[in-house]
Amino acid sequence: MPTETPFSLVGIDHVVLLIDDMKAALSFYYGVLGCQPGYSYPELGMEQVWCGSSLIVLWDITHPGGRKAAPPISGGRNVDHICIATGPFDHQAMRAHLKSYGVEIHQEAFHGGARGMGYSFYIHDPFGNKLEIKGPAEYPDGRATVSTG
Rank of each mutant, 00 (worst) to 15 (best):
V103A: 04
K68E: 02
S74F: 12
D80S: 02
P88E: 11
D80R: 04
I84C: 12
I56H: 00
S27Y: 10
G118D: 06
A24I: 10
G118M: 10
G113Y: 10
W50S: 01
G34K: 02
P126F: 14
I19T: 13
G45H: 03
D60K: 04
A114Y: 11
P71H: 11
S8I: 11
Y39E: 03
W59F: 04
G112K: 14
V16A: 00
C83W: 07
Q107D: 09
V10P: 01
S74R: 11
R115Y: 10
H111N: 13
I123F: 10
G76F: 09
F89D: 08
Y101S: 04
Q92M: 12
G102L: 08
T86N: 11
P88L: 06
Y101V: 09
A85L: 10
V49D: 00
R95M: 09
V10H: 09
A114F: 14
I19L: 07
G45C: 04
V32M: 10
G87L: 10
F89P: 00
G66P: 01
I105H: 05
V15L: 13
G34Q: 01
Y41V: 09
I105W: 07
Y41S: 02
G11H: 05
D21G: 04
H97L: 12
V103Q: 03
L55V: 09
A70W: 07
A96L: 10
M94D: 07
V15A: 06
T86G: 07
G116W: 14
G31V: 08
D80V: 07
G113T: 09
D20N: 15
D90L: 11
L44Y: 00
F28M: 13
R95V: 15
N78E: 00
L98D: 05
E43I: 06
A96I: 09
V10I: 15
T86S: 12
